[in-house]
Design a binder for these strands. Structure first.
Length: 927
RNA sequence: GCCCAGGUGGCGGAAUUGGUAGACGCGCUGGACUUAAAAUCCAGUGGCCAUUUACGGCCGUACCGGUUCGAUCCCGGUCCCGGGCACCA
């Protein structure tokens, strides 16, 4: 019987669905295992072969765990709010809910074709009110809590109010926007409105003024990737930075815990490193600079207080509140113009563009608190308002940006750190700054001769003693801006009274997204929700018109899968305590700092308030690589409709054009299909080589515009889902990016056919032999068990498939048809090729699904070898192999070696200096 | 610019702890089967040199240098490509 994948795959997909094979529930008799994929955003383009890569890997692992006796939670859903659907809605007028639903259905169809073992009864969609009521609910809790630095945990704002009414801010150590001081008497005397304003200063969800990319022509706020060089991508209108009142989440309160939590989880070091950099903890000092002839003080944060004697000027961020008071008469115009100019640049452009040096002098002078020298105060956009205090002391000799600035504006440069083994030199001869992390201090009064670390410590001490500032731990991690001036997102459960925000009743959740007449901002530039009729509470108070950002819905979805239909809670205690946390999380690196920081924050907060039992949500994390496209090219002769085959193209004047990879096979163009592809090519002529038109190729991003998109549907149609699953894994390590090339797929397809033949031979009915296996057969099986188990454990699926190929080749050579060998092999292949395995399992006489069977046990006796083939090297070069009994000791090996005549040949009369013997590995003769 | 990852045959990749570089597969070449094709099977396949009996020799993991008996792997530097950089998700 032939391998008929179409029939087999349809049969088992139906079977799994009907018998709910992969639906799971709480089962205390089994250990739990939670395997999660980062849920997709259902885009209109559907899935291409790159998307399922991680899903296949996680599906294999889920099967593997299931076969090893675990109760495996393996769900899937959709991250369904987002800009593309809204953009499409603006263009076509179609409601985003409609297009999103359509896209989800398409995604589901494509996912179903691949035979994943998801428990679809747990599906979630972030845009579903039953789901987003819990996103809104978490937001409400964030509003109701503040962060106590003393207990390192979130606590109810009601308790904070109580505290204020008893002792005021006395002894309070809270995460807040602004440090406040008041007594209980003052608190009690404040109006209700004033009290609410103050509480907002502490809430974990709070309102604040932030910078946004404002496009006046479109009347809306733009995302960073909608802005290019100061203009909107859509329409090319000018974009400026504007302050706007927005919701923020006080993520920074959790900075220390987000940092230390990394030590307890099994993520790659590189990913942890990215998060550490994102959190950006730095120890330093806040230092106060007086201003000459003014009572304004400039506060700077510096990690390099030791270089204070080299601080020769100061720089304020253009957004700094100090700019205005420090602009001296006569300088207003210039400063004003500079600030207007800098508003045209996005933050990213300001950080990345180090070559362009811009800035303006304020006309003011600060006093260096140590040298007492007057130093000029400047405004420049390389200083960012969001980090530290929005002002810096510039040490041009030892910071490259400060150096370039000083050079450009002719400001003094003083060397204060001397590199080890060097003499002081005149900074005016320098080409660049010396960004000194080590060395000794010079030109620095009481610090002279100290090493950098010692000088830092001594300066800090001095700062504290003299009251010039304070020691401070600073984080680069910023509070997350949580408002979007968009339609297609979660509405805030918030209304305004007297200009202050209040939460709506819990009972009013979910607050559903209202209908609007257009998905655009209003004429006044308000967000789309301002268009909704009656967007207000029952009492007539206006509701918030912003919506939540994309990461809101994805921050706790892994919890909702544990208990997706619970209408009383985000997740029940029982479900959370059973499923606990995600054991394995697979997704792309593009989420390394965004989603993966926010959801850790979100989870820690829920942990603090007792909703979840685990402090960290994702125990182990694997980043899948991207699948790139492999584009094909045809070469058209200029000003003609003649195409030249790749090998001959240099003999003509040609331009390369992308051609659809789906009409090219092994780089040979299907000329007929090409002519039909585009009317323009109907009458195309070709210059062939060896009777073929050979295309050129290149590795590029997989995208429609490159005509290199390959859909899983086409592959499944032609080769079947099992082949696609296998091939995606065979392509290379999951974590690595690699190009998709359909040409190689024959190899794994042939392998599956060969596997099929191993069971069926030429017969119509499958008959396995119940004889005892030979030693050789057992060796093949157990070597494979060892290899496959190891490979799956370390997520090396590509090498696992190679091992299967080797195993099947060997068993085919041995003509093995024995049940005791082939059945364990089948169980191991089931995670990779589930349809084919179920079919053969059934044909072998089993009534139950193969998913109910057990992973084979390794018998180490079959791994032993009596002899070892030692590679013998001379001075590190492998020369010949020596077969020796495996139980020989060091001396016996050396003896055997010296008796071998080849040894003398390669010694060429030299005397042996040393023989290195690594047991069971290698022999190296040194002469 | 900063942070992270990667660079091995014609191609995807393997080498798990510093120990035989190129497993496995694609492609290519030759052969078997066939009227023919498909399918299947067998052999060869990093480069250069040698090949007149046969054993071969040299080079080679982006580039330069170092550590080591031994380096694709560790260290220092350079180049190239990909991802992220806070409103794409």
């Amino acid at each position: 019987m032939d391998y008929n994948f179409k029939e087999i795959e349809a049969r088992w997909q139906t079977f799994w669905k009907q018998s709910k094979t992969f639906e799971v529930g709480i089962d205390h008799s089994k250990p739990k295992f939670y395997v999660l994929d980062m849920f997709p955003y259902p885009s209109g383009a559907g899935l291409h072969v790159g998307h399922p890569l991680g899903y296949i890997a996680s599906d294999i692992y889920s099967w593997y765990k299931r076969l090893n006796g675990f109760n495996v939670l393996h769900p899937m859903g959709y991250d369904a709010f987002g800009l593309p659907a809204e953009q499409y809605a603006i263009q076509t007028g179609q409601h985003p809910a409609v297009t999103t639903d359509k896209n989800i259905r398409r995604y589901r169809e494509q996912l179903d074709l691949l035979g994943f073992s998801y428990d679809w009864s747990r599906e979630v969609r972030t845009c579903d009110p039953h789901y987003y009521r819990w996103t809104q609910w978490v937001f409400m809790q964030l509003f109701r809590y503040w962060y106590n630095n003393e207990t390192q945990k979130a606590e109810p704002v009601t308790q904070l109010e109580e505290r204020f009414s008893h002792i005021g801010t006395n002894g309070l150590d809270a995460a807040c926007s602004e440090l406040l001081n008041f007594s209980s008497a003052e608190w009690n005397a404040f109006t209700h409105k004033k009290q609410q304003e103050i509480l907002l200063n502490y809430r974990l969800a709070y309102l604040a003024e932030t910078q946004v990319n404002w496009c006046p022509a479109l009347g809306t706020v733009l995302a960073n990737d909608e802005v290019k060089e100061g203009f909107s991508v859509r329409g090319g209108h000018p974009v400026e930075q504007r302050k706007m009142k927005q919701w923020l989440l006080r993520v920074s309160a959790y900075a220390e815990r987000l940092l230390s939590g990394l030590d307890s989880i099994d993520w790659t070091e590189s990913l942890k490193e990215m998060q550490r950099n994102w959190i950006g903890r730095s120890e330093g000092a806040n230092l106060l600079f007086a201003v000459d002839g003014s009572d304004v003080t400039i506060e700077v944060f510096t990690t390099r207080a030791d270089t204070i004697y080299g601080a020769t000027f100061m720089v304020l961020a253009p957004e700094s509140e100090l700019v205005k008071p420090l602009t001296a008469p006569g300088y207003e115009k210039e400063v004003e113009n500079y600030i207007l100019d800098s508003r045209k640049r996005t933050e990213r452009e300001r950080i990345a563009d180090v070559k362009r040096v811009t800035g303006v002098f304020t006309g003011s002078y600060a006093i260096n608190p140590f040298t007492k020298e007057k130093i000029s105060v400047w405004v420049a956009d390389y200083v960012l308002a969001g980090y530290g205090t929005g002002a810096i002391m510039a040490v041009p000799a030892h910071d490259s940006r400060d150096f370039r600035f000083a050079r450009h504006f002719n400001l003094p440069i003083i060397q204060v750190v001397l590199q080890p083994d060097q003499q002081p030199s005149d900074p005016s001869t320098w080409e660049d700054s010396f960004d000194a992390k080590e060395g000794t201090l010079i030109n620095s009064s009481f610090l002279n001769g100290l090493t950098v670390p010692d000088a830092i410590a001594k300066t800090k001490l001095e700062i504290e003693q003299q009251g010039l500032g304070n020691i401070q731990v600073n984080y680069r991690l910023r509070d997350a801006i949580f408002s979007r001036q968009r339609y297609w997102g979660e509405p805030f459960p918030v209304y305004y009274k007297d200009g202050l925000p209040y939460l709506i009743d819990d009972a009013a959740l979910p607050l559903e997204l209202p209908e609007v007449d257009a998905f655009l901002p209003t004429e006044k530039g308000e967000p789309p929700l301002a268009r909704a009729q009656n967007w207000q509470t029952k009492d007539g108070y206006p509701l918030e018109t912003s919506t939540m950002p994309g990461f809101a819905g994805s921050s706790a979805y892994y919890l909702r899968y544990m208990d997706p239909n619970n209408s009383q809670a985000l997740v029940s205690k029982e479900a959370n305590e059973y499923w606990q946390d995600v054991d394995l999380y697979i997704g792309g690196t593009e989420h390394a700092v965004g989603h993966l920081i926010y959801s850790r924050f979100w989870n820690k907060f829920l942990y603090d308030i007792g909703v979840v039992c685990r402090d960290e949500p994702f125990r182990k994390l694997i980043n899948q690589g991207m699948i790139q496209g492999r584009s094909n090219f045809v070469y058209r002769m200029k000003e003609s409709n003649t195409f030249v085959s790749s090998g001959l193209k240099d003999q003509y004047d040609t331009i390369p054009l992308h051609v659809d990879v789906n009409i090219v096979s092994h780089d040979i163009l299907d000329i007929e299909a090409f002519r039909n592809w585009n009317p323009e090519y109907r009458n195309a002529e070709f210059i062939l080589e060896n009777g073929h038109y050979v295309c050129g190729w290149a590795i590029e991003k997989m995208s429609k515009s490159m005509f290199n998109v390959v859909n899983p549907d086409i592959i499944v149609e032609k080769y079947g889902a099992d082949t696609l699953r296998l091939y995606e894994m065979f392509l290379g390590p999951v974590e690595q990016s690699k190009p998709w090339d359909t040409n190689g797929i024959d190899g794994v397809h042939k392998f599956l056919k060969k596997l099929w033949r191993l069971f069926f031979g030429q017969e119509e009915v499958l008959t396995l032999i119940d004889e005892n296996p030979t030693l050789e057969e057992n060796k093949v099986l157990h070597r494979t068990i060892k290899k496959i188990t190891d490979d799956i454990e370390r997520f090396s699926f590509n090498t696992a498939i190679s091992s299967f190929m080797i195993c099947v080749n060997e068993l085919t050579d041995l003509k093995c048809r024995k049940r005791a060998i082939l059945e364990p092999l089948l169980v191991m292949i089931a995670p990779f090729a589930p349809h084919l395995s179920e079919e053969l399992w059934r044909c072998a006489g089993h009534q139950q699904s193969i998913s109910n069977s057990t992973w084979p046990t390794l018998d180490p006796q079959y791994l032993m070898d009596d002899t070892i083939e030692y590679p013998v090297s001379f001075n590190g070069k492998m020369r010949f192999k020596l077969s020796l009994a495996s139980d020989l000791d060091h001396q016996e090996i050396e003896k055997a070696l010296l008796h071998n005549e080849l040894t003398n040949k390669y010694l060429q009369g030299n005397t042996i200096k040393k023989v290195v013997i690594v047991p069971k590995r290698i022999i190296n003769v040194v002469f």
